[in-house]
Design a binder for these strands. Structure first.
Length: 588
RNA sequence: GGGGACGUAGCUCAAUUGGUUAGAGUACCGGACUGUCGAUCCGGUGGUUGCGGGUUCGAGCCCCGUCGUCCUCGCCA
């Protein structure tokens, strides 16, 4: 070892010892006759001192050192003189008086330094990721990530789970997200696909009798990115045999409580609250509601049906919904101009025809440009329904149910942030259960699996698969943390008959099913046990437990919004020779 | 694919709403300083205003295109 100690561990108890430490020069303070520098490594910072009293030649040498150079220092740990201790540093009571200095490596002048006050732009951070990762915040996040993943592995090990690796090179299935494809050299014209999740493999493992499987699994989806979405991400994937949904949720709840306790020191009361999908859509307009604050959607379709305002009445009569939100005390915050901007936003982003709104005046009456189109009694009814109080700001969306959900979900989120409706440090965990089996896809005019095609319907809904597929509910459960989908799973179909029926509804004929999932259908015939599981989005867990608002900050080497790596400049071009070997010809 | 924001010194930002030689802090280079810790003080180097067109007497600022980063809708079984 080139060092006896790290830069984070020396304390007053080490005073008098001769130590050797290595690290990067964080900052230096040249005072002429004495020079201080903070030596930094992963573990912390330690002040190193050079002075004329000590060794004038060494002091001269130290004056040539610059930021981010890597040095080795041999010296004696000494207590800092009274009045010069630095309470901001854990090592601030001591310093190292240097007797030997070795320059291990120089650095060119870096574009930014880990300690600088203003964070550089994200593109620069990503290009020089090795400098960015030297920052304490990034280190803390990666350490948190390590701790959470280790906690998960320990937990599942204690609960008798086996970690089994599944292939990265699989076959493409057109369902779901777009695949990342890998051309096969040996099979010209054929392609592997990187896994979107290890779904089928883990089900096969259940059929193979490995009744508790877990894996920290990398997954790939070639879809457009978001603040919380990367093209490659990591799931804590698990599957269990001979279990009910309650069993799977119970295991996960134990994990949630343990991780929350160990990382944030908070006690999560169990069991976690559960809400059905339908209820979540009614109350919050979304299947992953942020329940750190109330502000629930209020339905007023019945009042709309009998009111004089044509827009409302027409919507209600057309079978649409008229729903709204009461942003308590927000009337003054939103000016006419701002409201117009919000209206444009909901029209553009969610396809609403418009947004009606009222401000509640001192006397409790509803004021709005459209108020005169209602009778006083009607206004009073709406006011009562929304529990209107002076100063409140009430917005309405009259549209198809799905549109009201999207718009009101968006508005609720906006109000939550802008009106400070929640403590940003609060953590809220809940389950959303009983998702629909299918969603109608307007484009292809077919039913599409809401989760995936192997999801088991509730036993009492099996009949509905044939009669009313849209009403059938799945044995499915999503873990929601602070309005973010932090995990999702289902009990799977384990008999071939139900599986065939579901494939049929999804427009997958028998031949196609055989071609794509033949191995699964075969396996189902060889004694498949009842089984189910869940996958947790590890990157999102790190975001949530780390209080971060960006998934890139949770990943050592993330990709930009256009799925590029700014450091390696992937994706890149390849030689014609490589393409020829793969029997691939480009279109230009 | 659609909408929006941003792009000025190595870095973080400013530049009177189109007007003289594009500024500041920091970094970097040189100098001073024996207890600093965001050290301080003095001096200095540093600019294709992302790129390409256009409008104008005159463009960092206006217009068109393009590239990049971010946010967002679609998309993400």
């Amino acid at each position: 070892m080139l060092r006896t100690h790290t830069c984070g561990e020396l304390r007053e108890t080490h005073v008098g010892q001769e130590v050797t430490i290595c690290g990067w020069i964080d900052t230096y303070r040249d005072q002429g006759g004495v020079l201080f520098l903070d030596l930094r490594d992963r573990y912390g910072k330690t002040q190193v001192v050079f002075s004329t009293n000590n060794d004038p030649a060494l002091l001269e040498l130290s004056k040539t050192l610059r930021q981010e150079w890597v040095i080795q220092v041999v010296g004696k740990v000494t207590a800092r003189p009274e009045g010069t201790k630095n309470p901001k540093l854990p090592t601030g009571d001591i310093e190292v008086r240097t007797s030997k200095l070795t320059l291990l490596n120089k650095s060119v002048t870096p574009p930014f330094t880990p300690g600088q006050r203003d964070l550089p732009g994200e593109d620069l951070r990503l290009k020089y990721r090795y400098l960015d990762l030297r920052r304490q915040e990034m280190q803390q996040t990666l350490i948190l990530r390590h701790r959470i993943v280790k906690e998960m592995r320990d937990y599942f090990d204690e609960h008798n789970f086996l970690e089994v690796e599944t292939p990265m090179l699989g076959r493409s299935t057109p369902e779901g997200a777009r695949d990342y494809l890998v051309p096969s050299r040996v099979h010209p014209g054929k392609f592997y696909a990187l896994p979107q999740s290890p779904q089928l493999y883990k089900q096969i493992l259940m059929m193979a009798g490995y009744d508790r499987y877990v894996q920290v699994a990398r997954c790939f989806r070639d879809e457009d990115l978001r603040a919380d979405r990367q093209p490659e991400f990591t799931q804590l994937d698990l599957e269990m045999s001979f279990v009910t949904a309650d069993d799977v949720m119970g295991i996960i709840e134990g994990l949630v409580a343990r991780v929350a306790k160990k990382t944030l020191g908070i006690d999560v009361p169990l069991p976690l609250p559960r809400m059905t999908y339908d209820e979540a859509m009614e109350r919050y307009g979304h299947d992953a509601p942020d329940r750190r604050f109330d502000l629930e959607i209020v339905d007023a379709t019945d009042l709309a049906a009998k009111c004089d305002f044509r827009v409302f009445r027409a919507a209600a009569e057309a079978g649409e919904r008229v729903r709204g939100l009461n942003a308590k005390g927000a009337a003054e915050k939103y000016s006419r101009k701002t409201i117009d901007e919000i209206t444009e936003w909901v029209k553009h982003d969610f396809g609403c025809k418009g947004m009606a709104w009222f401000k509640v005046e001192a006397g409790g009456t509803l004021a709005s440009p459209i108020a005169k189109q209602f009778s006083a009694e009607q206004l009073a009814e709406f006011a009562t329904r929304f529990k209107a109080e002076p100063g409140d700001f009430i917005v309405f969306i009259a549209d198809k149910f799905e549109v009201t959900c999207k718009a009101l979900y968006g508005l609720r989120k906006k109000f939550g942030v802008e009106l400070n409706l929640y403590d940003p440090k609060a953590m809220n965990f809940s389950w959303i259960i009983e998702f629909p089996m299918f969603a109608w896809d307007e484009e292809s005019k077919t039913w599409a699996a809401m989760h995936h095609p192997f999801t088991a319907p509730r036993p009492q809904d099996i009949e509905m698969l044939s009669t009313d597929p849209g009403k059938a509910r799945a044995v499915a459960y999503d873990l929601v943390i602070n309005g973010s989908e932090a995990g999702g799973g289902t009990i799977r179909i384990h008999d071939q008959e139900t599986q065939s029926k579901v494939f049929g509804l999804l427009g997958i004929d028998e031949a196609t099913a055989r071609e794509r999932f033949g191995f699964l259908l075969d396996a189902l015939q060889f004694g498949a046990p009842p089984h189910g599981g869940i996958a947790l989005g590890i990157d999102r867990w790190i975001m949530l437990f780390g209080g971060l608002d960006n998934i890139r900050d949770c990943i050592a080497f993330p990709k930009t919004q256009k799925a590029a790596d700014m450091m390696t400049e992937a994706p890149g071009t390849v030689d014609l020779k490589q393409l020829r070997e793969l029997s691939i010809k480009l279109n230009q």
